[in-house]
Design a binder for these strands. Structure first.
Lengths: 185, 185
DNA sequence: TGTACATCAGTGAACGCGCGTTCACTGATGTAC
DNA sequence: TGTACATCAGTGAACGCGCGTTCACTGATGTAC
């Protein structure tokens, strides 16, 4: 059952991508190696030909989740605070963690993970800050990063709580309240 | 080895309290029934005399974690935004999740848990809002709840990210940036 | 270019381990007389 | 109040199961001639 180098690289690629989504949906401990491999169209035995351990995949999948998504077409519109908030604090984002922000989906799990995973999360926060910085370009330079960090934390907290909460009304209220509050600053 | 009714009630109490702390520290899946019972000074076999399942304890421990802490002495000082932020967004709080806010410690795990656990988290958010409302008593009534929800989400997000992030500098920066940003509104 | 063989990506059974849960048992508690 | 007995909180061995990981094997790929 040997497979060409190119196909093997694609397999590895598929595993990382599947893991990046499944970890966000089920948590790092909520999905096993065998199920990840099955979702990638493989059997579990081949996993260790690609990765040292599940934990090693966790770090790589986290990095992948933070990398800018491949489809770069929607970059056309210039991001504004309104647009960023509307997209991030939307019911669609809340209900689709697998394709959404990994900071909100895995943030509190990450605190209990290995240094490699936590390093990926540092990178994730920096990537988010880099995306948000342009929103504050009319502010003094020394305040821009501070505002971007604060906005990032607010959005992540609101999305996470809107998912954690059992009450659907409260969940929507959280999204709406944070959107409205962050717009009127 | 039967034990008096009063002692049995204390045992149950101890299990819930221990679980409320250990779950916050290790996550719902990061600590097992046997270890929880050992931490409560018991053996694991007795667990199911007190609870239907681990999941049932999870819901009860979450509620416990959201209940106001027993020591009511520090209520003397009137809470201000400054004091709330200084306490919540402190390195001490960040480094002691077991005694800290369960929204930040377990929020993204909760999204994947049973309705009972998620109902507890609704209650947790409402409890936080109730605590924060007085900070906005000079605002129009219809804005108070919105502001309290937004503040809650911001603080939870900042604390969670400061724990998730591997870089110690970035971690401190997150706490400081959110504190400063939330004060200047 | 064609052939022979070494390589190695992927398979699927098997491993040890820890987990949540069950159960027969123990012995102090609580109760009936 | 004292005695006999039923109750039941807690014990510790055992269960089935799923997990991460290992390994002997397969057969197509890639390479040496």
């Amino acid at each position: 059952m040997r497979v060409s180098k190119a196909e093997a690289a694609q397999s590895r690629e598929r595993i990382v991508q599947v893991a990046a989504e499944q970890f966000r949906e089920h948590g790092f401990d909520g999905i096993g190696v065998a199920d990840l491999m099955k979702a990638a169209g493989l059997t579990h035995g081949g996993f260790y030909g690609h990765f040292d351990s599940k934990e090693s995949l966790m770090a790589e999948a986290a990095l992948r989740a933070f990398a800018p998504s491949s489809g770069g077409a929607e970059k056309a519109e210039k991001p504004t605070l309104e647009r960023v908030l509307a997209a991030y604090l939307s019911p669609e984002h809340r209900d689709n963690p697998a394709q959404g922000c990994a900071l909100a989906a895995l943030g509190c799990d990450a605190a209990r993970q290995s240094p490699a995973v936590r390093a990926a999360f540092s990178q994730g926060v920096e990537a988010a800050v880099a995306k948000l910085l342009p929103l504050f370009e009319n502010l003094p330079v020394e305040q821009q990063r501070e505002q971007a960090l604060a906005l990032c934390a607010s959005m992540v907290g609101a999305l996470m709580l809107s998912r954690a909460v059992g009450d659907a009304g409260l969940s929507g209220e959280l999204l709406a309240a944070c959107k409205s509050s962050l717009l009127n600053v």
